[in-house]
Design a protein around this nucleic acid. Structure first.
Length: 918
RNA sequence: GCCCGGAUGGUGGAAUGGUAGACACGAAGGACUUAAAAUCCUUUGGCUUCACGGCUGUGCGGGUUCAAGUCCCGCUUCGGGUACCA
């Protein structure tokens, strides 16, 4: 009987479905384990072979944990809202809900073919009302809470209102957009509208006028992580800065907790680093500068308080509100012109062209420490959104200030002994201070500390921590997203009552903005409350639905709550999360924020959502090339191409095998090539190759369905793991897949020969047991360490050795089939079944290594001289160190090597090696 | 610029400081076959030797060590992230 993977895989996939093998329920008798994949966006292109890499890895771990007796939660769903479906809808008129449904069906079909152990009863789709009900609900909670900076947690906004009523802003410790000051009397005197406006300054979900990334091509604003180098991450369209009234989430309030939490979770170092940089904590001082001849002052943030004596000018961001106040009448027209010019420049232009630009405001500030007068300039190299939007410039020790000073011919005062600032600034925090009054003679490090102390003591400012992390802009002027549960009364936003949730996405006639330029929801009929208050026209961004989806899997059908306390307390949080690094500063920040917020509310019991996180590498494409001789339809094989003048052309990798082109398929591939002729080498056409991004245009996309069709799901699973370390990026190269398939056939041949079952009940020999237990040990270790490529090797070695011994004994093959089940579940099920077992291999018990079987009676010692191995010497395993040394020295080959000399030293590592130093 | 991660045969890759190249692909040779496929066996880092063997070898240059792909220092180079963040 042949290894008929098609029948086997069909049979067991049907069995799993019919027997609910992967249905998961709360079971207090068992320890839980939650394994999660980053759920996919169901694109129209379907899955390519890169997608399953992480899914296979998590599937192996899920199955392994189950075999070890854990109650494993391993769900899958779809991140179903998003731009591509809507762009497609604009082009074709096809409703995004329809295309999304089709795409999901395709994904599901592809995923099922690979044999994952997902509990499909828990599937979620972010675009379904019973799911986004809870996205909207969470938003309402964020609106109703503020962040208490003293408690470092979210608190009901009602508490803040109470405080305003009794003491005003006195002693308020709340994260806010801007510092406000008013008394309780003032608060009470305000209109409802004004009070609401003030509360927006504190709410965790708030509406505010913000400088945002506006993408005209997509017709929407984007969050910081959705923009890279002035272009939208999706589509690569230019992005410009605009001030718009937008919903935002006060993620920045959680900056410190997001940072602290990183040390409590087991993520890769590179990922925690990326998040740390994104959060960007910097410790420094906020320093107050008076303005000459005026009765107001302003503050700057600096991490280099030690350089206060080197400040030769100040710079304000063009958007800073101070600009108006400091501009003198004489400079007004020049400043005006500059502001106009900068406004016209897009973010991209500013980044591409780093010319030094700026204008003098006409005013002078007073150095609070030295008392000197320093000019105040305006320049776009200072960002309005960071710190106070104003800086003190120290050209000698900051390269940006240096460039500015050189350009406008401003003084440069060096502050470090022996430094040369004639060509460039000295930015490093090292050296001994000079020209710095009370700081002279100190090291930079000491000076920073002393200066901060001084500033605090003299009340010139205060010690301050700044974060780079910004609030997340939460409005999108698009259709295909969650509607906000928001209506407007006198222009102020109010939340819908929870009983009105979910607020369902309405139908519209066209997926485009209205003639008035409103978002697409402006087209919806009766888009208002029962009392005729208008509803919000924006929808939520992509990360809204993905921020708490892992919680919903715990209790996906609950219509009373996001997750019940029982389900949450049992499943707690994700034990193992596998996905790509591209979410490092987006989803993985927002999810942690969202989780912490719900934790503050007592809805969930864990402060961090993902305990352990592994990033699978990207699967790159491996493109193949053919070489057409110029002006002909003749193609020349790779190693002969240099003899001709050729053009390199991409060829579909699916008609190439082991870099050999199927010339007949090539002729049928594209009409142009129907009459192609070939110059072959050794009767074959060899293609060139290169590693490129996997994309349609490179003709290097490989569909997992094709691999499953040709080799079976088990081969695909094993091969994807065999390709290399999980976390490493690697090209998809089908060249090695035959070896993995051969392995399965060889395994099969231990069970069957010529259609007869070979399995016997004979007692296994010591050698056979050693092979088995060596493999158990290795596989267990490798799974725990996610070293799946070496596991596959270990299986191959095991089967090769059993094959050599012609071992078909049940006592070996049965544990082996269980061991293999996480990796190749279909064939494992079948083999487990033919061995006479009932039910599924999923309910078996993972074999445990018995060290007794691994004991060796003899060890082959490599005998090395000065570290170079010269020969092997077999000695009893229990021989003492001294006896090993004696035996090694007494050996005639040693005597020959020594050549009459006596060794200087002999190193014996018992069980390992002998090194003789000459 | 800054922060991470790499660099090992023709290819993918393996190697708790202890025999570098496991396992696999590819290639070469052979068996079976009318033939092909499939399967099985042998060889396969480089140089050298009839052979035993020897020399050399993990991007480059140093160092630590009885022993270095592995640890340390200094480079080269390729990926990834991030950036007027004061």
């Amino acid at each position: 009987m042949e290894y008929n993977f098609r029948d086997i895989e069909q049979k067991w996939q049907a069995y799993w479905k019919n027997n609910n093998t992967y249905k998961t329920e709360i079971d207090p008798a068992k320890p839980k384990y939650y394994v999660l994949d980053m759920f996919p966006y169901p694109s129209g292109a379907g899955l390519h072979v890169g997608h399953p890499l992480g899914y296979i890895a998590s599937d192996i771990f899920s199955r392994y944990k189950r075999l070890q007796g854990f109650n494993v939660l391993h769900p899958m769903g779809y991140d179903a809202y998003g731009l591509p479906a809507e762009q497609y809808a604009i082009q074709t008129g096809q409703h995004p809900a329809v295309t999304t449904k089709i795409n999901i069906a395709r994904y599901r079909e592809q995923l099922e073919k690979i044999g994952f152990c997902y509990d499909w009863d828990r599937e979620i789709r972010t675009c379904e009302p019973d799911y986004y009900h809870w996205t909207q609900w969470a938003f309402v909670q964020m609106f109703n809470h503020y962040f208490n900076t003293k408690l470092q947690k979210a608190q009901p906004i009602s508490g803040l209102v109470k405080a305003f009523e009794t003491v005003g802003t006195e002693g308020i410790q709340a994260s806010c957009t801007e510092e406000l000051n008013f008394t309780s009397t003032e608060w009470k005197a305000k209109s409802e509208k004004d009070q609401q406006e003030i509360l927006l300054n504190y709410r965790i979900a708030y509406l505010a006028d913000l400088k945002v990334n506006w993408c005209p091509a997509l017709g929407t604003v984007l969050a910081n992580d959705e923009v890279s180098e002035g272009l939208s991450v999706r589509g690569g369209h230019p992005v410009e800065q605009r001030v718009m009234r937008q919903w935002s989430l006060r993620v920045s309030a959680y900056a410190q907790r997001l940072l602290d939490g990183l040390s409590t979770i087991d993520w890769t170092e590179s990922l925690t680093e990326t998040q740390k940089n994104w959060i960007g904590r910097s410790e420094g001082a906020e320093l107050r500068f008076d303005i000459k001849g005026q009765d107001f002052n302003f503050e700057v943030f600096t991490t280099r308080a030690d350089t206060i004596y080197g400040v030769t000018f100040m710079v304000l961001a063009p958007e800073s509100e101070l600009v108006k106040q400091v501009t003198t009448p004489e400079q007004a027209s020049e400043v005006e012109a500059y502001l106009d010019a900068t406004k016209k420049r897009t973010e991209r232009e500013r980044l591409a062209d780093r010319r030094v630009t700026g204008v003098f405001s006409g005013s002078y500030a007073i150095n609070p420490v030295s008392g000197t007068e320093i000019p105040i300039w305006i320049s776009d190299y200072v960002l309005a959104g960071y710190g106070t939007g104003a800086i003190m410039a120290v050209p000698a020790h900051d390269n940006r200030d240096y460039a500015f000073a050189k350009h406008f011919n401003l003084p440069i005062i060096p502050l470090i002994e022996g430094c040369d600032v004639s060509e460039e600034s000295l930015d490093a925090k090292e050296g001994i201070m000079m020209n710095s009054g009370f700081l002279n003679g100190l090291t930079v490090k000491e000076a920073i500390a002393k200066a901060k102390e001084y500033i605090a003591e003299k009340q010139l400012g205060r010690v301050k921590v700044n974060f780079r992390l910004r609030d997340a802009i939460f409005s999108r002027q698009r259709y295909w997203g969650e509607p906000f549960p928001v209506y407007y009364k006198e222009g102020m936003p109010y939340m819908l009552d929870e009983s009105k949730l979910p607020l369902e996405l309405p139908e519209i006639d066209k997926f485009l903005p209205t003639e008035k330029g409103e978002p697409p929801l402006g087209r919806a009929k009766n888009w208002e409350t029962q009392d005729h208050f208008p509803l919000e026209l924006c929808t939520m961004p992509g990360f809204a639905g993905s921020s708490a989806y892992y919680l919903r899997y715990m209790d996906p059908k609950n219509d009373k709550a996001l997750v019940s306390p029982e389900a949450n307390q049992y499943w707690r949080n994700v034990d193992l999360y596998i996905g790509g690094t591209e979410h490092a500063t987006g989803h993985l920040v927002y999810s942690r924020f969202w989780n912490k917020f719900l934790f503050d509310l007592g809805i969930i019991c864990e402060d961090e959502p993902f305990k352990k996180l592994i990033n699978q590498g990207m699967i790159q494409g491996r493109s193949n090339f053919v070489y057409r001789i110029k002006d002909t339809n003749t193609f020349v094989s790779l190693n002969l191409k240099d003899k001709y003048e050729t053009t390199q052309l991409h060829v579909d990798v699916n008609i190439v095998s082991n870099d050999i082109l199927d010339t007949e398929k090539f002729k049928n591939w594209l009409p142009d090539y129907a009459n192609a002729e070939f110059i072959l080498e050794d009767g074959k056409y060899i293609c060139g190759w290169a590693v490129e991004k996997m994309s349609k245009s490179m003709y290097n996309v490989v569909n997992p369905d094709d691999i499953v069709e040709k080799y079976g799901a088990d081969t695909l699973r094993l091969y994807e793991m065999f390709l290399g370390p999980l976390e490493q990026s690697k090209p998809w190269d089908t060249n090695g897949i035959d070896g993995v398939h051969r392995f399965l056939k060889r395994l099969w041949s231990l069970f069957y020969k010529d259609g007869n079952l070979l399995v016997s009940d004979e007692t296994p020999t010591a050698d056979e047991l050693k092979i088995l237990h060596k493999t158990i040990k290795k596989i267990t270790f490798d799974i725990e360490n996610f070293s799946y490529n070496t596991s596959v090797s270990a299986f191959m070695i095991c089967v090769n050795e059993l094959f050599t011994l012609k071992c078909s004994k049940r006592g070996i093959l049965e544990p082996l089939s269980i061991l293999l089940a996480p990796f190749a579940p279909h064939v494992a099920e079948e083999l487990f079944y033919v061995l006479g077992n009932e039910g599924t291999v999923c309910d078996a018990i993972f074999p445990v290594c018995n060290e007794e079987y691994l004991k060796e009676s003899a060890i082959k010692y490599p005998i090395s001289f000065n570290g170079k191995v010269r020969f092997m010497l077999e000695l009893p395993a229990d021989m003492s160190k001294e006896d090993v040394e004696k035996a090694a020295l007494a050996n005639e080959l040693t005597i020959k090597q020594l050549d009459g000399n006596s060794p200087k030293k002999v190193i014996v590592v018992p069980g390992k090696i002998v090194n003789i130093v000459l």
